[in-house]
Design a protein around this nucleic acid. Sequence first.
DNA 1: GAAAGTGCAAGAGCGGTGCTCTGATTTATG
DNA 2: CATAAATCAGAGCACCGCTCTTGCACTTTC
Lengths: 229, 229
Amino acid sequence: MNAPRTARERARAELTREILAAARRQLGEVGPSALSLRAVARELEMASSAIYRYFKSRDELLTALILAAYNDIGDAAESADDPAAEPAERWTAIWRGVRAWALDNPHEFALLFGTPVPGYAAPQETAAAAGRMPLALARVVADAKAAGVLDLPPAPPCDPALIELDLTTLLPDVVFTAEETARILLAWNRLVGIVSYELHGHLVGVTADDAGFFDYAARTSGAFAGLPL
Amino acid sequence: MNAPRTARERARAELTREILAAARRQLGEVGPSALSLRAVARELEMASSAIYRYFKSRDELLTALILAAYNDIGDAAESADDPAAEPAERWTAIWRGVRAWALDNPHEFALLFGTPVPGYAAPQETAAAAGRMPLALARVVADAKAAGVLDLPPAPPCDPALIELDLTTLLPDVVFTAEETARILLAWNRLVGIVSYELHGHLVGVTADDAGFFDYAARTSGAFAGLPL
DNA sequence: GAAAGTGCAAGAGCGGTGCTCTGATTTATG
DNA sequence: CATAAATCAGAGCACCGCTCTTGCACTTTC
Protein backbone atom coordinates (compact mmCIF):
# COMPACT_ATOMS: atom_id res chain seq x y z
CA MET A 1 0.00 0.00 0.00
CA ASN A 2 2.40 2.65 -1.17
CA ALA A 3 1.21 6.21 -1.51
CA PRO A 4 0.03 6.81 -5.05
CA ARG A 5 2.50 8.88 -7.00
CA THR A 6 1.14 9.35 -10.44
CA ALA A 7 -2.30 10.59 -11.39
CA ARG A 8 -2.98 7.18 -12.81
CA GLU A 9 -2.26 5.40 -9.56
CA ARG A 10 -4.36 7.92 -7.73
CA ALA A 11 -7.28 7.32 -10.02
CA ARG A 12 -6.82 3.60 -9.64
CA ALA A 13 -6.84 3.75 -5.85
CA GLU A 14 -9.85 6.02 -5.97
CA LEU A 15 -11.79 3.71 -8.26
CA THR A 16 -10.85 0.70 -6.17
CA ARG A 17 -12.36 2.39 -3.16
CA GLU A 18 -15.47 3.34 -5.09
CA ILE A 19 -15.96 -0.20 -6.29
CA LEU A 20 -15.61 -1.50 -2.78
CA ALA A 21 -18.02 1.08 -1.44
CA ALA A 22 -20.59 0.31 -4.10
CA ALA A 23 -20.16 -3.40 -3.47
CA ARG A 24 -20.71 -2.90 0.25
CA ARG A 25 -23.83 -0.92 -0.42
CA GLN A 26 -25.12 -3.63 -2.71
CA LEU A 27 -24.16 -6.30 -0.22
CA GLY A 28 -26.27 -4.59 2.40
CA GLU A 29 -29.22 -4.54 0.06
CA VAL A 30 -29.26 -7.91 -1.59
CA GLY A 31 -26.93 -10.16 0.38
CA PRO A 32 -23.71 -11.94 -0.46
CA SER A 33 -25.02 -14.56 -2.85
CA ALA A 34 -26.85 -11.97 -4.93
CA LEU A 35 -23.91 -9.63 -5.13
CA SER A 36 -23.43 -8.94 -8.80
CA LEU A 37 -20.35 -7.55 -10.44
CA ARG A 38 -22.46 -6.24 -13.30
CA ALA A 39 -24.73 -4.36 -10.96
CA VAL A 40 -21.75 -2.77 -9.26
CA ALA A 41 -20.44 -1.79 -12.67
CA ARG A 42 -23.81 -0.32 -13.61
CA GLU A 43 -23.92 1.72 -10.45
CA LEU A 44 -20.50 3.10 -11.22
CA GLU A 45 -21.41 3.60 -14.88
CA MET A 46 -18.54 1.55 -16.17
CA ALA A 47 -18.32 -1.56 -18.28
CA SER A 48 -18.64 -4.82 -16.40
CA SER A 49 -15.36 -5.98 -17.81
CA ALA A 50 -13.55 -2.98 -16.38
CA ILE A 51 -14.07 -4.20 -12.83
CA TYR A 52 -11.76 -7.10 -13.56
CA ARG A 53 -8.88 -4.66 -13.79
CA TYR A 54 -9.35 -4.01 -10.09
CA PHE A 55 -10.57 -7.34 -8.74
CA LYS A 56 -9.67 -10.27 -10.84
CA SER A 57 -12.70 -12.25 -9.78
CA ARG A 58 -15.92 -11.99 -7.83
CA ASP A 59 -14.31 -14.01 -5.06
CA GLU A 60 -11.50 -11.52 -4.75
CA LEU A 61 -14.04 -8.76 -4.32
CA LEU A 62 -15.74 -10.89 -1.69
CA THR A 63 -12.46 -11.37 0.13
CA ALA A 64 -11.98 -7.62 0.27
CA LEU A 65 -15.49 -7.26 1.63
CA ILE A 66 -14.89 -9.96 4.21
CA LEU A 67 -11.74 -8.27 5.37
CA ALA A 68 -13.57 -4.97 5.70
CA ALA A 69 -16.41 -6.62 7.58
CA TYR A 70 -14.06 -8.35 10.01
CA ASN A 71 -12.40 -5.07 10.75
CA ASP A 72 -15.77 -3.41 11.09
CA ILE A 73 -17.06 -5.88 13.63
CA GLY A 74 -13.71 -5.69 15.38
CA ASP A 75 -14.11 -1.93 15.59
CA ALA A 76 -17.61 -2.37 16.94
CA ALA A 77 -16.37 -4.71 19.65
CA GLU A 78 -13.38 -2.61 20.62
CA SER A 79 -15.18 0.70 20.65
CA ALA A 80 -17.95 -0.76 22.81
CA ASP A 81 -15.38 -1.68 25.40
CA ASP A 82 -14.66 0.77 28.20
CA PRO A 83 -11.50 -0.57 29.88
CA ALA A 84 -12.26 1.48 32.97
CA ALA A 85 -15.57 -0.23 33.67
CA GLU A 86 -16.24 -3.35 35.66
CA PRO A 87 -15.49 -6.64 33.87
CA ALA A 88 -19.12 -7.76 33.62
CA GLU A 89 -20.15 -4.38 32.24
CA ARG A 90 -17.35 -4.40 29.70
CA TRP A 91 -18.31 -7.90 28.66
CA THR A 92 -21.97 -7.06 28.17
CA ALA A 93 -21.09 -3.86 26.35
CA ILE A 94 -18.96 -5.75 23.84
CA TRP A 95 -21.67 -8.33 23.33
CA ARG A 96 -24.23 -5.63 22.74
CA GLY A 97 -21.90 -3.78 20.40
CA VAL A 98 -21.41 -6.87 18.30
CA ARG A 99 -25.14 -7.62 18.24
CA ALA A 100 -25.97 -4.05 17.27
CA TRP A 101 -23.46 -4.17 14.44
CA ALA A 102 -24.87 -7.47 13.25
CA LEU A 103 -28.44 -6.20 13.30
CA ASP A 104 -27.33 -3.15 11.35
CA ASN A 105 -25.29 -5.19 8.90
CA PRO A 106 -26.98 -8.56 8.69
CA HIS A 107 -25.60 -9.42 5.27
CA GLU A 108 -22.09 -8.62 6.24
CA PHE A 109 -22.47 -10.67 9.40
CA ALA A 110 -23.73 -13.52 7.23
CA LEU A 111 -20.72 -13.05 5.02
CA LEU A 112 -18.46 -13.66 8.01
CA PHE A 113 -20.27 -16.36 9.94
CA GLY A 114 -22.86 -17.77 7.57
CA THR A 115 -22.48 -20.31 4.83
CA PRO A 116 -19.27 -19.71 2.93
CA VAL A 117 -19.73 -19.16 -0.77
CA PRO A 118 -19.43 -22.35 -2.87
CA GLY A 119 -15.82 -23.17 -3.56
CA TYR A 120 -14.45 -20.18 -1.77
CA ALA A 121 -12.19 -20.45 1.28
CA ALA A 122 -11.20 -17.39 3.28
CA PRO A 123 -7.52 -16.70 2.65
CA GLN A 124 -5.07 -16.58 5.51
CA GLU A 125 -4.77 -12.80 5.36
CA THR A 126 -8.18 -12.41 6.99
CA ALA A 127 -7.15 -14.26 10.14
CA ALA A 128 -5.76 -11.25 11.96
CA ALA A 129 -8.83 -9.16 11.33
CA ALA A 130 -11.06 -12.08 12.21
CA GLY A 131 -9.41 -12.36 15.58
CA ARG A 132 -10.08 -8.82 16.73
CA MET A 133 -13.62 -9.43 17.95
CA PRO A 134 -12.91 -12.53 20.03
CA LEU A 135 -9.76 -10.87 21.24
CA ALA A 136 -11.82 -8.03 22.68
CA LEU A 137 -13.67 -10.62 24.74
CA ALA A 138 -10.45 -12.26 25.82
CA ARG A 139 -9.05 -8.92 26.89
CA VAL A 140 -11.79 -8.47 29.45
CA VAL A 141 -11.10 -11.87 30.92
CA ALA A 142 -7.37 -11.17 30.85
CA ASP A 143 -7.82 -7.92 32.76
CA ALA A 144 -10.05 -9.61 35.28
CA LYS A 145 -7.45 -12.29 35.77
CA ALA A 146 -4.70 -9.71 36.14
CA ALA A 147 -6.83 -7.97 38.75
CA GLY A 148 -7.22 -11.28 40.54
CA VAL A 149 -10.99 -11.31 40.35
CA LEU A 150 -11.35 -14.16 37.88
CA ASP A 151 -13.59 -16.82 39.35
CA LEU A 152 -14.24 -19.89 37.21
CA PRO A 153 -17.42 -21.67 38.27
CA PRO A 154 -17.17 -25.46 38.46
CA ALA A 155 -17.67 -27.29 35.19
CA PRO A 156 -16.35 -30.39 33.44
CA PRO A 157 -12.60 -30.06 32.92
CA CYS A 158 -11.00 -29.33 29.58
CA ASP A 159 -8.09 -31.44 28.41
CA PRO A 160 -5.33 -28.96 27.43
CA ALA A 161 -4.51 -31.15 24.45
CA LEU A 162 -7.78 -30.07 22.84
CA ILE A 163 -6.77 -26.44 22.53
CA GLU A 164 -4.27 -25.21 19.99
CA LEU A 165 -4.80 -21.47 20.30
CA ASP A 166 -2.31 -19.70 22.52
CA LEU A 167 -3.76 -16.36 23.52
CA THR A 168 -0.42 -15.34 25.03
CA THR A 169 0.90 -14.59 21.57
CA LEU A 170 -1.94 -12.12 21.12
CA LEU A 171 -2.25 -10.87 24.69
CA PRO A 172 1.17 -10.71 26.24
CA ASP A 173 1.41 -10.20 29.98
CA VAL A 174 -1.31 -12.77 30.57
CA VAL A 175 -1.09 -16.52 30.66
CA PHE A 176 -4.33 -18.36 30.17
CA THR A 177 -4.90 -21.94 31.14
CA ALA A 178 -6.44 -24.22 28.52
CA GLU A 179 -9.52 -24.23 30.71
CA GLU A 180 -9.81 -20.47 30.52
CA THR A 181 -9.07 -20.34 26.82
CA ALA A 182 -11.68 -22.98 26.12
CA ARG A 183 -14.31 -21.05 28.04
CA ILE A 184 -13.52 -17.89 26.11
CA LEU A 185 -13.83 -19.82 22.88
CA LEU A 186 -17.20 -21.15 23.93
CA ALA A 187 -18.30 -17.63 24.83
CA TRP A 188 -17.19 -16.31 21.45
CA ASN A 189 -19.01 -19.13 19.74
CA ARG A 190 -22.13 -18.44 21.79
CA LEU A 191 -22.11 -14.76 20.94
CA VAL A 192 -21.97 -15.52 17.25
CA GLY A 193 -24.41 -18.39 17.61
CA ILE A 194 -27.10 -16.39 19.38
CA VAL A 195 -26.83 -13.51 16.94
CA SER A 196 -27.02 -15.95 14.02
CA TYR A 197 -30.10 -17.58 15.49
CA GLU A 198 -31.76 -14.23 15.92
CA LEU A 199 -30.88 -13.11 12.39
CA HIS A 200 -31.95 -16.36 10.79
CA GLY A 201 -35.26 -16.49 12.59
CA HIS A 202 -34.52 -19.57 14.68
CA LEU A 203 -35.72 -17.76 17.80
CA VAL A 204 -39.13 -16.83 16.43
CA GLY A 205 -41.71 -18.33 18.71
CA VAL A 206 -38.97 -19.40 21.09
CA THR A 207 -37.87 -16.28 22.88
CA ALA A 208 -40.24 -13.49 23.84
CA ASP A 209 -37.60 -10.78 24.06
CA ASP A 210 -34.59 -11.21 21.82
CA ALA A 211 -32.57 -8.41 23.35
CA GLY A 212 -33.32 -9.62 26.85
CA PHE A 213 -32.47 -13.19 26.00
CA PHE A 214 -29.28 -12.00 24.39
CA ASP A 215 -28.31 -10.18 27.57
CA TYR A 216 -29.09 -13.29 29.54
CA ALA A 217 -26.81 -15.29 27.27
CA ALA A 218 -24.12 -12.65 27.72
CA ARG A 219 -24.39 -12.86 31.50
CA THR A 220 -24.25 -16.63 31.66
CA SER A 221 -21.36 -16.67 29.24
CA GLY A 222 -19.47 -14.03 31.19
CA ALA A 223 -20.03 -15.88 34.41
CA PHE A 224 -18.91 -19.14 32.82
CA ALA A 225 -15.76 -17.45 31.58
CA GLY A 226 -15.04 -16.41 35.16
CA LEU A 227 -16.11 -12.79 35.30
CA PRO A 228 -17.34 -11.71 38.74
CA LEU A 229 -20.93 -10.63 39.33
CA MET B 1 -50.76 -37.01 0.72
CA ASN B 2 -53.41 -39.42 -0.56
CA ALA B 3 -52.37 -42.69 -2.04
CA PRO B 4 -52.06 -42.37 -5.81
CA ARG B 5 -55.03 -43.99 -7.55
CA THR B 6 -54.52 -43.61 -11.24
CA ALA B 7 -51.46 -44.54 -13.23
CA ARG B 8 -51.01 -40.86 -13.94
CA GLU B 9 -50.82 -39.95 -10.30
CA ARG B 10 -48.46 -42.79 -9.63
CA ALA B 11 -46.09 -41.63 -12.35
CA ARG B 12 -46.29 -38.12 -11.01
CA ALA B 13 -45.44 -39.16 -7.47
CA GLU B 14 -42.60 -41.26 -8.77
CA LEU B 15 -41.11 -38.42 -10.76
CA THR B 16 -41.50 -36.03 -7.85
CA ARG B 17 -39.46 -38.39 -5.71
CA GLU B 18 -36.84 -38.73 -8.43
CA ILE B 19 -36.52 -34.98 -8.75
CA LEU B 20 -36.10 -34.61 -5.02
CA ALA B 21 -33.52 -37.37 -4.91
CA ALA B 22 -31.54 -35.82 -7.74
CA ALA B 23 -31.76 -32.42 -6.10
CA ARG B 24 -30.44 -33.84 -2.84
CA ARG B 25 -27.58 -35.46 -4.63
CA GLN B 26 -26.77 -32.18 -6.35
CA LEU B 27 -27.12 -30.29 -3.11
CA GLY B 28 -24.54 -32.53 -1.54
CA GLU B 29 -22.15 -31.86 -4.38
CA VAL B 30 -22.40 -28.16 -5.07
CA GLY B 31 -24.20 -26.58 -2.13
CA PRO B 32 -27.51 -24.80 -1.78
CA SER B 33 -26.73 -21.59 -3.60
CA ALA B 34 -25.45 -23.44 -6.64
CA LEU B 35 -28.38 -25.81 -6.81
CA SER B 36 -29.65 -25.55 -10.35
CA LEU B 37 -33.02 -26.65 -11.63
CA ARG B 38 -31.60 -27.06 -15.07
CA ALA B 39 -28.86 -29.33 -13.83
CA VAL B 40 -31.42 -31.47 -12.04
CA ALA B 41 -33.43 -31.61 -15.24
CA ARG B 42 -30.34 -32.62 -17.19
CA GLU B 43 -29.56 -35.40 -14.77
CA LEU B 44 -33.11 -36.71 -15.17
CA GLU B 45 -32.97 -36.20 -18.92
CA MET B 46 -36.03 -34.05 -19.04
CA ALA B 47 -36.70 -30.52 -20.22
CA SER B 48 -35.86 -27.86 -17.67
CA SER B 49 -39.33 -26.44 -17.99
CA ALA B 50 -40.88 -29.77 -17.08
CA ILE B 51 -39.64 -29.50 -13.50
CA TYR B 52 -41.99 -26.62 -12.97
CA ARG B 53 -44.88 -29.02 -13.26
CA TYR B 54 -43.67 -30.58 -10.03
CA PHE B 55 -42.19 -27.67 -8.13
CA LYS B 56 -43.45 -24.33 -9.15
CA SER B 57 -40.24 -22.54 -8.28
CA ARG B 58 -36.71 -23.14 -7.17
CA ASP B 59 -37.69 -21.96 -3.70
CA GLU B 60 -40.39 -24.58 -3.47
CA LEU B 61 -37.85 -27.26 -4.28
CA LEU B 62 -35.61 -25.77 -1.60
CA THR B 63 -38.42 -25.90 0.91
CA ALA B 64 -38.93 -29.57 0.19
CA LEU B 65 -35.21 -30.15 0.64
CA ILE B 66 -35.20 -28.20 3.89
CA LEU B 67 -38.07 -30.22 5.23
CA ALA B 68 -36.30 -33.43 4.33
CA ALA B 69 -33.09 -32.22 5.94
CA TYR B 70 -34.84 -31.22 9.16
CA ASN B 71 -36.39 -34.64 9.38
CA ASP B 72 -33.08 -36.24 8.56
CA ILE B 73 -31.22 -34.46 11.35
CA GLY B 74 -34.16 -35.16 13.63
CA ASP B 75 -33.82 -38.84 12.79
CA ALA B 76 -30.10 -38.67 13.47
CA ALA B 77 -30.71 -37.13 16.87
CA GLU B 78 -33.48 -39.50 17.86
CA SER B 79 -31.81 -42.64 16.66
CA ALA B 80 -28.63 -41.72 18.51
CA ASP B 81 -30.58 -41.55 21.74
CA ASP B 82 -30.79 -44.65 23.87
CA PRO B 83 -33.50 -43.86 26.44
CA ALA B 84 -32.21 -46.60 28.68
CA ALA B 85 -28.77 -45.05 29.12
CA GLU B 86 -27.60 -42.53 31.67
CA PRO B 87 -28.61 -38.89 30.98
CA ALA B 88 -25.10 -37.66 30.30
CA GLU B 89 -24.45 -40.55 27.93
CA ARG B 90 -27.70 -39.98 26.10
CA TRP B 91 -26.88 -36.29 25.80
CA THR B 92 -23.42 -36.88 24.38
CA ALA B 93 -24.73 -39.53 22.02
CA ILE B 94 -27.29 -37.12 20.59
CA TRP B 95 -24.67 -34.43 20.18
CA ARG B 96 -22.36 -36.82 18.40
CA GLY B 97 -25.17 -38.06 16.23
CA VAL B 98 -25.98 -34.55 15.13
CA ARG B 99 -22.35 -33.73 14.49
CA ALA B 100 -21.81 -36.90 12.49
CA TRP B 101 -24.85 -36.13 10.36
CA ALA B 102 -23.63 -32.59 9.80
CA LEU B 103 -20.15 -33.74 8.78
CA ASP B 104 -21.73 -36.22 6.39
CA ASN B 105 -24.18 -33.68 5.01
CA PRO B 106 -22.48 -30.30 5.32
CA HIS B 107 -24.49 -28.65 2.60
CA GLU B 108 -27.77 -29.79 4.03
CA PHE B 109 -26.68 -28.59 7.46
CA ALA B 110 -25.83 -25.25 5.89
CA LEU B 111 -29.23 -25.22 4.29
CA LEU B 112 -30.81 -25.45 7.73
CA PHE B 113 -28.56 -23.31 9.88
CA GLY B 114 -26.49 -21.25 7.49
CA THR B 115 -27.33 -18.11 5.62
CA PRO B 116 -30.86 -18.29 4.34
CA VAL B 117 -31.22 -17.92 0.58
CA PRO B 118 -31.87 -14.33 -0.55
CA GLY B 119 -35.53 -13.46 -0.28
CA TYR B 120 -36.57 -16.84 0.93
CA ALA B 121 -38.13 -17.41 4.34
CA ALA B 122 -38.80 -20.89 5.63
CA PRO B 123 -42.53 -21.49 5.65
CA GLN B 124 -44.34 -22.41 8.84
CA GLU B 125 -44.76 -26.02 7.79
CA THR B 126 -41.11 -26.71 8.52
CA ALA B 127 -41.42 -25.76 12.18
CA ALA B 128 -42.49 -29.17 13.45
CA ALA B 129 -39.66 -30.95 11.68
CA ALA B 130 -37.22 -28.26 12.81
CA GLY B 131 -38.14 -28.90 16.40
CA ARG B 132 -37.35 -32.57 16.44
CA MET B 133 -33.62 -32.23 17.04
CA PRO B 134 -33.80 -29.75 19.93
CA LEU B 135 -36.68 -31.77 21.32
CA ALA B 136 -34.46 -34.82 21.51
CA LEU B 137 -32.17 -32.79 23.74
CA ALA B 138 -35.06 -31.57 25.84
CA ARG B 139 -36.31 -35.11 26.29
CA VAL B 140 -33.10 -36.13 28.02
CA VAL B 141 -33.39 -33.24 30.42
CA ALA B 142 -37.06 -34.01 30.96
CA ASP B 143 -36.34 -37.61 31.82
CA ALA B 144 -33.59 -36.55 34.19
CA LYS B 145 -35.98 -34.16 35.85
CA ALA B 146 -38.67 -36.81 36.11
CA ALA B 147 -36.10 -39.11 37.69
CA GLY B 148 -35.28 -36.37 40.16
CA VAL B 149 -31.61 -36.19 39.22
CA LEU B 150 -31.68 -32.78 37.54
CA ASP B 151 -29.12 -30.53 39.17
CA LEU B 152 -28.83 -27.00 37.80
CA PRO B 153 -25.46 -25.48 38.59
CA PRO B 154 -25.57 -21.87 39.81
CA ALA B 155 -25.71 -19.25 37.08
CA PRO B 156 -27.25 -15.84 36.50
CA PRO B 157 -31.05 -16.13 36.70
CA CYS B 158 -33.30 -16.02 33.65
CA ASP B 159 -36.34 -13.76 33.69
CA PRO B 160 -39.29 -15.98 32.69
CA ALA B 161 -40.65 -13.12 30.58
CA LEU B 162 -37.81 -13.68 28.13
CA ILE B 163 -38.94 -17.14 27.11
CA GLU B 164 -41.94 -17.76 24.91
CA LEU B 165 -41.46 -21.43 24.13
CA ASP B 166 -43.50 -23.77 26.29
CA LEU B 167 -41.97 -27.21 26.08
CA THR B 168 -44.94 -28.66 27.93
CA THR B 169 -46.95 -28.54 24.73
CA LEU B 170 -44.33 -30.74 23.11
CA LEU B 171 -43.32 -32.84 26.08
CA PRO B 172 -46.38 -33.48 28.20
CA ASP B 173 -45.89 -34.95 31.65
CA VAL B 174 -43.02 -32.56 32.30
CA VAL B 175 -43.12 -28.95 33.41
CA PHE B 176 -39.99 -26.97 32.74
CA THR B 177 -39.15 -23.72 34.46
CA ALA B 178 -38.11 -20.81 32.27
CA GLU B 179 -34.66 -21.28 33.70
CA GLU B 180 -34.50 -24.86 32.52
CA THR B 181 -35.99 -24.05 29.14
CA ALA B 182 -33.49 -21.27 28.62
CA ARG B 183 -30.59 -23.55 29.40
CA ILE B 184 -31.84 -26.14 26.94
CA LEU B 185 -32.14 -23.43 24.32
CA LEU B 186 -28.60 -22.33 24.95
CA ALA B 187 -27.43 -25.91 24.67
CA TRP B 188 -29.23 -26.38 21.37
CA ASN B 189 -27.72 -23.14 20.12
CA ARG B 190 -24.28 -24.26 21.23
CA LEU B 191 -24.56 -27.59 19.50
CA VAL B 192 -25.42 -25.92 16.22
CA GLY B 193 -22.88 -23.18 16.81
CA ILE B 194 -19.96 -25.49 17.42
CA VAL B 195 -20.78 -27.65 14.43
CA SER B 196 -21.12 -24.55 12.27
CA TYR B 197 -17.78 -23.27 13.44
CA GLU B 198 -16.16 -26.57 12.65
CA LEU B 199 -17.77 -26.78 9.21
CA HIS B 200 -16.95 -23.21 8.32
CA GLY B 201 -13.36 -23.44 9.39
CA HIS B 202 -13.56 -21.03 12.29
CA LEU B 203 -11.82 -23.54 14.53
CA VAL B 204 -8.78 -23.99 12.31
CA GLY B 205 -5.74 -23.05 14.33
CA VAL B 206 -7.92 -22.71 17.40
CA THR B 207 -8.72 -26.22 18.52
CA ALA B 208 -6.28 -29.08 18.25
CA ASP B 209 -8.88 -31.84 18.29
CA ASP B 210 -12.25 -30.92 16.88
CA ALA B 211 -14.01 -34.08 18.02
CA GLY B 212 -12.53 -33.77 21.50
CA PHE B 213 -13.44 -30.12 21.78
CA PHE B 214 -16.92 -30.96 20.59
CA ASP B 215 -17.29 -33.56 23.33
CA TYR B 216 -16.04 -31.03 25.84
CA ALA B 217 -18.67 -28.57 24.66
CA ALA B 218 -21.27 -31.31 24.95
CA ARG B 219 -20.25 -32.07 28.52
CA THR B 220 -20.24 -28.48 29.69
CA SER B 221 -23.56 -27.88 27.98
CA GLY B 222 -25.08 -30.97 29.52
CA ALA B 223 -23.84 -30.01 32.95
CA PHE B 224 -25.17 -26.49 32.50
CA ALA B 225 -28.56 -27.89 31.51
CA GLY B 226 -28.54 -29.81 34.79
CA LEU B 227 -27.57 -33.32 33.78
CA PRO B 228 -25.68 -35.23 36.51
CA LEU B 229 -22.07 -36.30 36.04
C1' DG C 1 -64.99 -47.09 -30.09
C1' DA C 2 -64.60 -42.25 -31.32
C1' DA C 3 -64.61 -37.50 -29.63
C1' DA C 4 -63.84 -34.16 -26.28
C1' DG C 5 -61.15 -32.70 -22.63
C1' DT C 6 -56.94 -32.53 -19.76
C1' DG C 7 -52.12 -33.13 -17.99
C1' DC C 8 -47.69 -32.76 -19.36
C1' DA C 9 -43.16 -32.32 -21.91
C1' DA C 10 -40.62 -29.73 -25.16
C1' DG C 11 -38.70 -25.67 -27.19
C1' DA C 12 -37.90 -20.98 -27.77
C1' DG C 13 -37.13 -16.90 -25.54
C1' DC C 14 -36.36 -13.07 -21.77
C1' DG C 15 -33.31 -10.90 -18.88
C1' DG C 16 -29.88 -11.89 -15.87
C1' DT C 17 -25.08 -13.81 -14.25
C1' DG C 18 -19.47 -14.41 -14.12
C1' DC C 19 -15.90 -14.15 -17.06
C1' DT C 20 -12.76 -13.59 -21.42
C1' DC C 21 -11.04 -11.69 -25.56
C1' DT C 22 -10.34 -7.94 -28.92
C1' DG C 23 -9.59 -3.59 -30.41
C1' DA C 24 -9.46 1.33 -29.33
C1' DT C 25 -8.14 5.11 -26.28
C1' DT C 26 -5.80 7.35 -22.85
C1' DT C 27 -1.66 8.06 -20.08
C1' DA C 28 3.23 8.04 -18.71
C1' DT C 29 7.90 7.71 -20.14
C1' DG C 30 12.32 7.76 -23.09
C1' DC D 1 7.16 13.78 -30.04
C1' DA D 2 6.89 8.93 -30.39
C1' DT D 3 6.62 4.67 -28.13
C1' DA D 4 5.18 1.60 -24.62
C1' DA D 5 2.08 0.58 -20.96
C1' DA D 6 -2.26 0.80 -18.71
C1' DT D 7 -7.06 1.12 -19.09
C1' DC D 8 -11.35 0.99 -21.24
C1' DA D 9 -15.86 -0.39 -23.78
C1' DG D 10 -18.07 -3.88 -26.20
C1' DA D 11 -19.08 -8.25 -28.08
C1' DG D 12 -19.45 -12.86 -26.93
C1' DC D 13 -19.53 -17.53 -24.30
C1' DA D 14 -21.95 -20.57 -21.42
C1' DC D 15 -24.74 -20.64 -17.80
C1' DC D 16 -28.84 -19.40 -14.67
C1' DG D 17 -34.31 -19.06 -13.13
C1' DC D 18 -38.38 -18.57 -15.15
C1' DT D 19 -42.42 -18.03 -18.66
C1' DC D 20 -45.14 -18.89 -22.65
C1' DT D 21 -46.82 -21.46 -26.52
C1' DT D 22 -47.22 -25.58 -29.03
C1' DG D 23 -48.23 -30.26 -29.70
C1' DC D 24 -48.46 -34.88 -27.98
C1' DA D 25 -50.46 -38.56 -25.09
C1' DC D 26 -53.44 -40.07 -22.02
C1' DT D 27 -58.49 -40.07 -19.71
C1' DT D 28 -62.85 -39.55 -19.53
C1' DT D 29 -67.19 -39.21 -21.47
C1' DC D 30 -70.65 -39.99 -24.78
